[in-house]
């Protein structure tokens, strides 16, 4: 058990604390400016000497995603909003009935996807909005790493949709409620998180199923390590890493279990160039965990609520964190 024992090396003194003032939904870096998406209305741009708050929504912010150049958010005001590095917001879509925007995704060439209830929408960088209805409310959205293809998670499986093609979308079936979806970075696997404490996966070449189970709780955070070698996830009191190196992915393999504590892992974020995972726990602690030897570095001590957001900048020198109770900060590891 590593419970912040005094011999764990620490980088806490490299932290620049930021008073977010509201629960943090997500964090991202736009160029090298840390941006915190707050629970209501606001994006907080926290550059070193210049904090600005950008009003993006007229209500709660339900979901957010970033590709490093912009942040797309969905709100309970029925709006899909994109915010660029300069802090300029643009409304991409407004639901006519002001229904909640549950999920968002960023695609190639300026494309954006979002969902409202059973309806998934895609707006390409240029061109008209398209929509696809799935059998039940959308649980998650993800663009494929190559081509213009969107995965839509829902009850009893996922739908793979080519928004530019007239063809019927492919149905990937697996019984149960799928609450999140991701492609592996090489595009060979599709992985969903489920309402049950388990992940499901398909090898896209042959539709072969993969079951990744043994979790204590629903998996709410998943991330790929550099080059997609491992899938890091929350859902347990330790960091769970599924091996995706071989051609069969994790089929028939056991996951690596690192950084065990008595607290649940809430958020994981993988370093962009090294096999290091930032792990945020329910008590507010953040550890940096090196995969090959399990070495741990303390990045944040417990306190101020459950960790709700973690993000690395593109070079991996800065780590941003946020908690449900509105604590936030940036750790400079350079």
């Amino acid at each position: 058990m590593t419970d912040a024992s005094s011999d764990t090396p620490s980088v806490i003194e490299r932290t620049r604390p930021i008073a977010a003032g509201a629960g943090v939904v997500a964090a991202a870096f736009l160029t090298d400016t840390p941006v915190f998406v707050l629970g209501e209305e606001t994006l907080l741009f926290a550059a070193k000497d210049n904090e600005t708050r950008v009003a993006a929504h007229g209500g709660g912010i339900l979901t957010a995603v970033s590709d490093g150049t912009r942040i797309v958010t969905g709100g309970d005001d029925g709006k899909v909003v994109t915010t660029d590095a300069a802090g300029t917001t643009t409304v991409i879509a407004t639901d006519a009935k002001r229904r909640w925007i549950d999920h968002v995704a960023i695609g190639p060439d300026g494309a954006t996807a979002w969902s409202v209830g059973k309806q998934a929408f895609v707006k390409p960088g240029k061109g008209d909005e398209r929509t696809q209805e799935v059998p039940s409310s959308v649980g998650g959205l993800a663009f494929a790493p190559k081509g213009f293809r969107l995965a839509i998670a829902h009850y009893n499986g996922a739908t793979l949709w080519f928004p530019n093609a007239a063809a019927k979308p492919d149905a990937m079936e697996w019984k149960g409620s799928h609450t999140d979806v991701m492609f592996s970075p090489d595009g060979r696997f599709l992985v969903t998180a489920m309402q049950e404490p388990t992940l499901h996966g398909w090898r896209l070449a042959d539709g072969k199923h993969m079951r990744m189970s043994g979790y204590a709780a629903k998996v709410r955070s998943m991330a790929w390590t550099v080059a997609g070698k491992w899938l890091a996830t929350s859902g347990s009191t330790q960091l769970i890493l599924w091996p995706f190196q071989g051609k069969d992915g994790p089929m028939g393999k056991q996951p690596e279990l690192l950084a065990p504590r008595e607290q649940r892992v809430m958020v994981v974020a993988c370093h962009p160039t090294q096999e290091i995972v930032a792990v945020g726990y329910d008590d507010g602690m953040v550890l940096l965990v090196r995969i090959h030897d399990g070495a741990e570095v303390l990045a944040r001590s417990p306190g101020d609520g459950s960790v709700s957001a973690l993000a690395w900048n593109t070079s991996g020198t800065l780590l941003a964190f946020g908690t449900e109770d509105g604590a936030a900060g940036v750790i400079d590891l350079a």
């Binding site: 909640w100 209830g117 409310s137 149960g176 409620s177 489920m194 309402q195 388990t198």
Partner: peptide, 22 residues
């Protein structure tokens, strides 16, 4: 907030174990 009353079965071998996904 509007709900859709989506009843989901849980994959735990128990047909009566349902939850409201919405």
């Amino acid at each position: 907030v509007g709900a859709d009353e989506e009843v989901f079965e849980m994959n735990n071998g128990c047909i009566c174990c349902t939850v409201r996904g919405d």
